[in-house]
């Protein structure tokens, strides 16, 4: 380890030290073991399933439950945490008074002192070992399982805290496990979200007909093709069933170089349609081969001008649709690497 005093290294060292302090809590019981106030009972189950609209009879009908091979009525698995809830009175009292001195409280205080005062739950994973039966008496232990290194999120920087709640019965047998993750973050550092690029999947789709399907199939393979009359060789775009010059129905596709020049362009502002970023620059390109094509301009509006050389690039709209766009040609040489976005 270098002893350099450069600021970034120092900052990194500070973060390492802070993380080490946070991680001293890993493995500790976050809060004292909590015991259910009531045994698993039919009355609470009935309230729950009625509220949820769950009409499965195994929760309320002893015979129906036995018909399924169970020993009697069982509790719906999603009720798991409800058996351990402390109730309104205790909840209100806890909120009003000082926080009990628990490892979790100390961990959160440490984070709060460092500015990580925001909180959001991010994950809640349940594992059910067995169904709860009437009369089960449940208790829950909560262990701090992990504290993450500092992460940068859309909400700001912070640390993820993962707790493992283990639910056991009157025989100390495990009935369920719950892994619960929160993010404690510094809301003051949250950057305003950059406007997300519009999702091209929302764009208007081309109408695929028998006469133009080949062109879009080629585009899906990132190949820019032009329809060519097999008899007289005339290129045509947009495609059609017959050569307007010699009236032949025979045609084949030829590969375009992908190079061309801007014949004209539009910078659109209003109205705004879903799937497009505005101001939206659209170019009309004279391809080297002599046909013309409309496509996106992959660059800033201020960059485009009539006559500028461009080269084809591609944009995936969705898994089935890829369409061309054009960017300023970097030189007269090979096109740049295609971008796979």
């Amino acid at each position: 380890m270098s002893t350099t005093t450069q600021a970034p290294a120092s900052e990194a060292t500070d973060q390492d030290a802070f993380l080490a302090r946070l991680r001293e809590f890993v493995g500790l019981e976050a809060t004292p073991t909590r015991y259910a106030q009531d045994a698993v009972n039919q009355a609470m189950i009935r309230h729950f399933v009625e509220a949820m609209g769950d009409e499965n009879p195994v929760y309320v009908d002893d015979r129906a439950a036995r018909d399924t091979g169970r020993e009697g009525v069982v509790a719906p698995p999603p009720m798991l945490s409800t058996w351990l809830m402390v109730g309104y009175k205790a909840h209100t009292a806890a909120a009003a008074g000082a926080a009990p001195d628990t490892p979790m409280a100390r961990l959160l205080a440490l984070l709060a002192d460092a500015g990580f005062v925001g909180v959001v739950a991010t994950n809640d994973e349940h594992e059910y070992v067995r169904e709860l039966r009437l009369g089960d008496e449940i208790k829950m232990t909560t262990v701090i399982e992990d504290v993450s290194p500092r992460k940068t999120t859309g909400l700001g920087t912070g640390h993820f805290i993962t707790t493992l709640r283990t639910y056991t019965d009157q025989n100390d047998e495990v009935v369920a496990r719950q892994r619960f993750r929160i993010l404690r973050f510094d809301p003051s550092g949250a950057k305003p979200a950059a406007p997300a690029a519009a999702d091209p999947a929302l764009r208007h789709k081309p109408f695929i007909l028998r006469d133009n399907a080949f062109w879009f199939a080629a585009a899906a393979q990132r190949r820019l093709v032009i329809q060519a009359c097999t008899d007289c060789g005339t290129l045509r775009h947009p495609p059609g069933p017959i050569c307007p010059s010699c009236h032949s129905y025979a045609w084949h596709e030829v590969e375009a170089s992908g190079r061309g020049t801007v014949h004209s362009y539009v910078v659109s502002h209003h109205p705004k349609a879903p799937g497009y970023d505005y101001p939206l620059t659209v170019v009309l390109v004279d391809l080297e081969e002599g046909t013309r094509l409309v496509a996106d301009f992959a660059g800033d509006a201020g960059e485009v001008e009539i006559g500028m050389p461009v080269q084809v690039d591609w944009l995936d709209y969705d898994e089935n649709l890829t369409l061309p766009r054009f960017r300023a040609a970097t030189s007269a040489s090979e096109p740049t690497e295609e971008e796979g976005n």
Binding site: H204, K205, P206, P238, V266, A273, V282, V294, Y317, L323
Partner: peptide
């Protein structure tokens, strides 16, 4: 429209 709509000339 196939040759203009996808690019936003609507």
């Amino acid at each position: 429209r196939s040759w203009v709509n996808p690019y936003g000339l609507l």
